[in-house]
Design a protein around this nucleic acid. Structure first.
Length: 409
RNA sequence: GGGAGAGUACCCAAGUGGCCAAAGGGGGCAGACUGUAAAUCUGUUGCUAGAUAGCUUCGGUGGUUCAAAUCCGCCCUCUCCCA
């Protein structure tokens, strides 16, 4: 039971593996290095990356050494795997910024102490490659025929794929070879969409070094309908506090579908499997208990216990009845919005970011979806008296579960 | 390089001179029902505006016209066929 591989299997994280028995055996008996790559497409990781992070932590706890690779080099190319469109090109500045942000995020989850884990940036070796040499040394080992048959290009072969993206696989494969050579890294892990790329590296190592390397992929965090999780109207659910406040992260997880709670608990938390199995028995509204646990555990890991507690109590007070929490999202309104001693409701909504435009606000109010301190806003002309805005301000609710506190100072 | 097509709102996709802020679907948002779930049903979905008004939108740009997403020129991007 102490074998990490078994743990990952039991938690239903593993999707594919190049050689199950062997990987299991090696992880059981040796302490190895393994790598997972992160592309710097944004300046923060999101909840989808959290599975990868969890795996690294599981592995590190089991005595293995994670190599977190940030794709400063591959980021200049853009991974076409499973995508329908070409990714937009990032400037060097954006890339550099993103690489740094991701690095610092990763270091919050892993122990990068002496020999415990390593962080590398593939820009360090990819950018200085010589084209002709690369083609001769690495390119020879790739069969275009086989690449074209690869699953990851399938969608793109219909819509169009250009040469730069076609090369992505070679870059990533080369990363693996390089890490094998420099760090004796024989394992590459990644999301299941990385399978083709990982296989590329495994084969490259075999061809160049005559050595056996291994690849393992994890199930992507998808909901019961197979749609990638972690997307909201506002975009991804980020691990960065500034981009997705702890309360929102908490609420996102608190609201996952019934059908997805158990899976998320297994994949995204360290809650012991026995406990999860107990929660699996919950039915009907009891399932909410499991959701609370999920939301709390993940928020705690991402933002710390204090933030998790705050998010939890905020949610409980908002949905429980007593609206007294101070950790719900809030906005200070500039006095210039006050007219005739009160704040027009549309301005309040707009300023707090609850609506993107006043037209949207009118629609909402017309449909009876806006409340101020639990009183339904009757019409667009409604204005909040300044007295109410002082101190803690008022609580605006949009729809059933979006709360926002607005105050003036 | 030659030839044939295509670029419409968040996405897919109709529309080929005025009735088009632009059908339909998806998604989103809100309402009902619920368990802060799912499914279902209803409404809504460019912006501004205290009514039937104005403004910006159909790859870009410049024209034709009383009037263009729709016609013409040039440009950009993409797909397909040929080289």
């Amino acid at each position: 039971m102490s074998n990490v591989y078994d743990t990952l299997v039991e938690r239903e994280i593993i999707a594919q593996c190049t050689n199950e028995e062997k990987v299991r055996e090696i992880l059981e008996n040796e302490n190895v290095s393994f790598y997972i790559g992160f592309d710097p497409t944004a300046d923060s990781l999101h909840i989808g990356h959290f599975v990868q992070i969890m795996v690294m932590v599981h592995m590190q706890r089991a005595g293995h050494r994670p190599i977190a690779l940030v794709g400063g080099g591959t980021g200049k190319i853009g991974d076409p795997s499973g995508k329908t469109d070409m990714r937009k090109m990032l400037t060097d500045e954006e890339l550099a910024h993103n690489v740094e942000s991701i690095k610092s995020q990763l270091s919050r989850f892993l122990d990068f102490g002496e020999g415990k884990a390593i962080m590398v940036n593939n820009a360090d070796w990819l950018l200085k490659l010589n084209y002709v040499e690369f083609l001769r040394d690495i390119g020879v080992h790739f069969s275009v025929n086989r690449m074209l048959a690869a699953e990851c290009f399938k969608q793109r072969l219909e819509k169009g794929l250009n040469f730069i993206e076609f090369n992505y696989m070679l870059m990533q494969s080369y990363d693996f070879l390089k890490l094998y050579q420099d760090y004796e890294c024989r394992f590459e892990f990644g999301g299941d969409d990385q399978w083709s790329n990982i296989i590329g590296g495994v084969e490259l190592i075999r061809r160049v070094e005559g050595a056996e390397a291994f690849g393992v992929t994890f199930k992507l965090l998808t909901n019961s309908e197979g749609v990638k999780m972690g997307k909201t109207v506002k975009g991804a659910v980020w691990l960065d506090k500034e981009k997705t406040p702890p309360y929102e992260l908490y609420q996102y997880l608190r609201n996952v579908d019934d059908a997805d709670v158990i899976k998320c608990l297994k994949m995204l938390t360290f809650v012991p499997l026995e406990e999860i199995r107990e929660m699996e028995k919950l039915e009907g509204s009891e399932i909410n208990q499991a959701k609370v646990r999920l939301a709390y555990e993940v928020t705690k890991m991402v933002h710390g216990e204090e933030e998790a507690e705050k998010a939890k109590s905020a949610a409980e007070s908002l949905f429980g009845g007593s609206k007294d929490s101070d950790s719900i999202p809030s906005t200070e309104i500039d006095e210039s919005f006050l007219t005739d001693g009160s704040l027009p409701i549309l301005d309040a909504l707009l300023e707090s970011g609850l609506i993107p435009s006043k037209a949207e606000g009118r629609r909402l109010i017309k449909q009876g979806g806006v409340y101020v301190n639990d009183e339904k806003v009757p019409n667009f002309d409604y204005a909040i008296p300044t007295e109410q805005l002082e101190g803690d301000g008022v609580l605006i609710r949009k729809g059933k579960k979006t709360y926002h506190r607005v105050y003036v100072n």
